[in-house]
């Protein structure tokens, strides 16, 4: 099929590329050197007016992850008065039952005297080489004990099997990475405790 090949279409395309090329310099000038390394610069490159150089130069500049971001899970512990770690996890096993690839292994602690289970995990393993970062464990935990982490810099020289010590992180860290979720859950827990205290006061 013959067509007239005057090159007009190619020139049109090249003009688009030329415009983008010139924009990279103009945008750099507009920002007067504060375009790279600053949070405003990074935010500008992710907004609707992004033009010019689109690159975010990892590792010097990191795009902040949104609050709902999910990577490998972690276990939340509250800090007790003497600085000891009180794990919120009661080893109920719901997270390991809902995990789609079954990558959570939990050993429930048993009281040696009575033989009844104690709500505290003896061992807790997550195989990060199986985990698919779906977030179902965090979604269905009734005790707000397991949450999805934001830390994605997990490259290592060996296989990644995380045990309880590696997974435990403080509640202050959780409030720092997910402020809105943490505030909502703390309010819900406080409300439930208040209503339970009121019910006990009424009954007693």
């Amino acid at each position: 099929m013959t067509q007239e090949m005057y090159g007009k279409g190619i020139l049109k395309g090249l003009s688009v590329s030329l415009k983008r090329f010139v924009e990279t310099y103009l945008d750099d000038l507009k920002w007067l050197g504060k375009r790279y390394g600053t949070p405003e610069g990074i935010a500008h490159r992710a907004s609707k007016e992004a033009r010019g150089i689109f690159t975010v130069q990892y590792p010097e500049e990191k795009i902040p992850v949104p609050e709902e971001f999910r990577f490998i899970p972690f276990l939340v512990y509250d800090e007790g008065p003497d600085g000891e770690k009180i794990m919120r996890c009661t080893s109920c096993g719901i997270c390991s039952r809902v995990c789609p690839p079954q990558c959570i292994w939990i050993v429930r602690t048993t009281d040696p005297a009575t033989g009844r289970p104690i709500p505290d995990p003896a061992e807790f393993y997550i195989d990060a080489d199986i985990c698919m970062n779906c977030g179902l464990c965090a979604e269905y935990c009734p005790f707000d004990a397991i949450k999805m982490d934001h830390d994605y810099e997990l490259a290592s020289f060996g296989r990644n099997l995380f045990n309880k010590e590696r997974l435990a992180k403080p509640a202050s860290y959780y409030e720092q990475i997910r402020p809105r979720n943490a505030a909502r859950e703390n309010a819900a827990r406080a409300a439930k405790q208040a209503s339970r205290a009121a019910a006990r006061a009424n009954a007693g």
Binding site: I72, D129, M132, N133, Y152, A155, S156, R159
Partner: peptide
């Protein structure tokens, strides 16, 4: 796992690892 057959130098977990995580692995 591919390390059943060929020797692996760096493991980058995640499903999928975000590009920043992969860059971290490449830096390793």
């Amino acid at each position: 796992g591919v390390d059943k057959f060929i020797p692996v130098d760096v493991y980058v977990p995640g499903c999928p690892p975000t590009p920043q995580a992969l860059l971290n692995g490449l830096m390793k």
